[in-house]
């Protein structure tokens, strides 16, 4: 048997069925590392599902549940997918969680160096849009190397200089866009319409009306996270909400929605029906 990692999970070659004890004729040795193609992320492994973002009067909110799935297995159930960066920025990540961990480490190191340098070279600290532009450039550069950072990331923040909120999206292709409400993945189909409806109800389609309050924003995010839990098989009824205002970042404790599954008993193939 070939136990080299390159052969894991692969069907045995025809030769192996003849003589699996003789490596000379069965699984050939894996090529030395320097001859192998450079290993890039081909697919996400441990993944987080959709994340949501919405602007409200004086701030911005992001929401993400605490689940990291391994395929359809609910593998890790206390993962934080919201991450603060400095005093006025939060990112929320969907997609590959190991890439996200790497990203957090990288960004933390950059912010730490910026912080250290700010003592001697007094320059303004990184604004949310600075961090967003950095991420967009990073993601686009990596996709252009065919080695993507397999995430869709929302950046929410408060720009101290402009005194305004920031909300942006960037993903593994380097695609970027901004909007007053954002949702990734399945949430783009399920939650985004609800978020837009709630946002436009007050602000109007041109966004020039009054924005929703913090309470209203929390309510619509709670509602969206519940609907996503009902509809998204990769979601979990345990989530957090990050709020950024001029006063800084607050990431809530994990919370759950009230759900009602009584109707499931009546579904054919689910309940106790025999017919």
């Amino acid at each position: 048997m070939n136990h080299h990692p390159a052969a894991w999970g692969r069907p045995l070659p025809a030769s192996a069925s003849f003589d699996m004890y003789n490596p000379q004729f069965s699984a050939p040795k894996a090529a030395p590392a320097h001859q192998m193609p450079v290993a890039h992320t081909q697919q996400p492994l441990v993944t987080g599902t959709s994340v949501l973002g919405i602007k409200f009067d004086g701030g911005v909110m992001l929401a993400a549940d605490n689940l990291a799935s391994y395929g359809s297995l609910a593998r890790f159930k206390d993962i934080e997918r919201l991450h603060p960066l400095g005093p006025h920025t939060v990112i929320a990540a969907a997609g590959d969680m190991s890439d996200f961990q790497w990203l957090k480490k990288e960004l933390n190191a950059i912010l730490r160096e910026e912080q250290a340098l700010s003592l001697t070279d007094s320059h303004p600290s990184l604004s949310p849009s600075n961090i967003y532009d950095f991420l967009a450039n990073l993601f686009y550069a990596r996709r252009s190397k065919m080695n993507p950072v397999w995430n869709a990331v929302l950046v929410g923040g408060w720009d101290r200089v402009k005194a305004e909120t920031f909300l942006g999206y960037v993903d593994l292709l380097g695609t970027t866009y901004s909007a007053p409400t954002l949702a990734t993945g399945f949430g783009a189909h399920i939650a985004q319409p609800l978020l837009r409806e709630a946002f436009e109800a007050k602000a109007g389609t041109d966004g020039k009306g009054p924005l929703m309050t913090q309470q209203e924003a929390t309510a619509v995010l709670d509602d969206c996270m519940k609907v996503l839990f009902y509809r998204d098989a990769r979601s979990m009824n345990k989530y957090q909400i990050a709020t950024v205002t001029k006063d800084g970042v607050v990431i809530s404790d994990s919370k759950s929605s009230e759900t009602q599954w009584g109707f499931a008993e009546d579904l054919r193939g689910y309940g106790a029906q025999t017919q």
């Binding site: 070659p13 025809a14 996709r143 695609t175």
Partner: peptide, 29 residues
């Protein structure tokens, strides 16, 4: 046919050549 049908096994790194990347770097917006 038995042999011809061999999946170009990644088992055999030399025969298979470089791994095919599943990642599609493009989208249409």
């Amino acid at each position: 046919a038995l042999y011809a049908e061999h999946p170009a096994s990644a088992h055999d790194a030399h025969a298979a050549g470089p791994t095919q990347h599943a990642f599609n770097p493009y989208s249409d917006n």
